[in-house]
Amino acid sequence: MTEIIKGHKNLLNNDLLDILALNPLFSTLDNCELEQIITHLNIVKLKKGEILFREGDKGNYACFLVSGEMDIVKDSVYGYVNVLASLNKGQSIGEMSIIDNTSRYATLLARTEASIITLTQADFNLILEKYTKTGIKILKGIARLLSINMQKVSGRLSDYMQPLH
């Protein structure tokens, strides 16, 4: 059973600040700003093989991997499961979920025991209201991460494209 630990008392430590600072969403925040947002985070502990969310679920929180390994998987039309990517410490998934309510495009599965920090859309909206400058920095981080991901996808797609002439 997935264990969810609410509140910041379980989260506030230097290791967590270091892990969050690795992620492009938070890389421009100083320790004071990171401490501001920690009160709005929860930690989720998963056992090996547990699913945090499934493809098609409503997305309303972003996930940041603190420990362990997670696989992003998607069912193929041929009936098998494709591992799209694997997440390691400091990486994230579902960042757009704190901006809009789109459905999850894939399933998130714990390859090993794992701990994940979550930031809900509601808590992100509170951060924007209470700590506007910090919230804007996070929004810029989302844009930066989307740009990085778009460049990766464009590079992969170009390998499969036929020349235009």
Rank of each mutant, 00 (worst) to 15 (best):
E35D: 09
I93A: 15
E113Q: 04
L87I: 11
G141S: 07
S115C: 11
N13V: 04
T28Q: 08
L25N: 02
T118P: 10
F53N: 13
H40D: 09
Y61M: 10
T120N: 04
L22G: 05
L46R: 02
K89I: 15
I148Y: 08
N42S: 13
S147H: 08
I98L: 05
I19N: 02
K133Q: 14
L41E: 08
I5N: 09
K6V: 07
I116V: 15
K152G: 09
F124G: 02
S76Y: 01
M161I: 11
Y131F: 15
H8T: 02
F64N: 01
G90E: 04
T132K: 04
E55W: 05
A114H: 02
N14Q: 09
T28R: 08
G135L: 08
D30R: 02
E55G: 05
Q162E: 12
V153L: 14
V77F: 12
M161S: 11
V77C: 07
G90M: 08
L65V: 08
G90P: 10
N82G: 02
Q151Y: 06
V83Q: 11
V81P: 01
F124C: 13
C63H: 01
E50A: 10
V44H: 01
N31F: 12
I138T: 04
L146V: 12
F26Q: 06
L109M: 13
S154F: 10
S76P: 04
K45G: 01
L11W: 02
T2F: 10
K89F: 08
D57N: 15
L17Q: 05
I148K: 07
V81W: 00
L128C: 12
H40N: 08
R104C: 13
F26G: 06
Y131W: 09
V44R: 00
N60Q: 11
N101K: 06
S76T: 15
F124Q: 09
G7I: 13
V81C: 03
Y160K: 09
L84P: 06
V153P: 02
T120R: 01
F53R: 00
I4R: 11
D123H: 13
Y80C: 03
